[in-house]
């Protein structure tokens, strides 16, 4: 019996190790490749056992800073994501609170409209939205990458279901003490809803940090372009230097990986909650 269990445990670990290998190899290839001379990235990546660089150097990282305005892209990405996340948390949670707790005419059918809007992905409206912002003269700015994405139907829905599940007693007590909806929301509801704020923040941050389609459509100057476009232009910029591209990639993903490692529990919880209501 014990023997059988050991074999079972061992095979679970073997399977896990095999998958871990498949998940790690591309990442390791990028990391090690970023320290190799360009002509060795391809050659050495292939030869078994030589993923590690023969000679180790920071030259590719220096190249990235010399060839593209990396810090500018990084700042743009961070600024755009932070604005969308912060604005989205405020605007969408307030709306969700109005839907979950306040009495107002039109509430129920507006909620239905919001839920229906959830299934319209950006791709389905990208072209007319592009036309719209062109008419507004917003192209090639920060705002065109921020304002359209602050209000989000899915975020409202996540907040709404969470607020519905909060016990009403605390709010009732505060109301009897004479607190208005503003105070109740900021002093009582928001502090008790940290998990859903974290979920929404993480999901919208991940979407925005990786956004390629929309910035590709509406921006053309480097002053406002985010990192994903940076790597796309870098990739199409001759001469094709793989070492530089990987160095760019490593620098692009490191901030997100750090955030991921620090807030791992929240990431996993956040993703898990999206499936609960499915």
């Amino acid at each position: 019996m014990i023997f059988k269990r050991r074999v079972g445990t061992l095979s679970v670990y073997l399977l896990l190790a095999a998958f871990a290998f498949a998940f790690l190899v591309p990442v390791a290839m990028m990391l090690f490749g970023s320290f190799k001379p360009d002509d060795q990235v391809l050659v050495q990546a292939a030869r078994s056992g030589s993923l590690l660089p023969a000679e180790f150097g920071w030259f590719n990282y220096r190249d990235v800073f010399a060839r593209v305005p990396f810090t500018r892209y990084l700042f743009n990405s961070a600024f755009i994501s932070v604005c969308i996340v912060a604005g989205g948390l405020l605007v969408n949670s307030l709306a969700a609170y109005a839907f979950a707790r306040l009495q107002w005419p039109g509430r129920d059918w507006l909620l239905l409209v919001v839920i229906a809007l959830m299934i319209i992905p950006l791709e389905a409206i990208a072209v007319p939205l592009f036309y719209e912002v062109t008419l507004l003269g917003w192209r090639d700015t920060y705002w065109v990458q921020i304002i359209p994405f602050i209000a989000n139907a899915f975020s409202i829905y996540l907040f709404y279901t969470f607020f519905l599940g909060l016990p009403r007693e605390l709010e009732e007590a505060a109301r009897i003490d004479g607190a208005g909806p503003w105070r109740i929301f900021f002093r009582i509801v928001a502090p008790n809803a940290k998990p859903v704020f974290a979920t929404v923040a993480i999901l919208s941050f991940l979407t925005q940090w990786g956004a390629l389609l929309w910035p590709l459509m509406v921006t053309h100057s480097e002053a406002v372009r985010p990192l994903p476009l940076g790597i796309a232009t870098f990739y199409s910029l001759p001469p094709l230097q793989w070492g530089d591209i990987f160095a760019f990639g490593v620098m692009m993903v490191t901030p997100v990986l750090l955030i991921f490692v620090l807030f791992q529990r929240w990431f996993v919880q956040g993703v898990a909650t999206t499936g609960v209501k499915g």
């Binding site: 709306a95 109005a98 306040l102 409209v113 919001v114 409206i125 304002i147 359209p148 209000a151 909806p181």
Partner: peptide, 24 residues
């Protein structure tokens, strides 16, 4: 309450109408 509710909801509703519903 109703006035405040509109105030709470209007920024998000405005955003959704301009940048999701209208383009759709």
């Amino acid at each position: 309450d109703a006035r405040l509710a509109w105030l709470f909801a209007s920024p998000a509703l405005l955003g959704l109408s301009c940048f999701v519903l209208l383009p759709f």
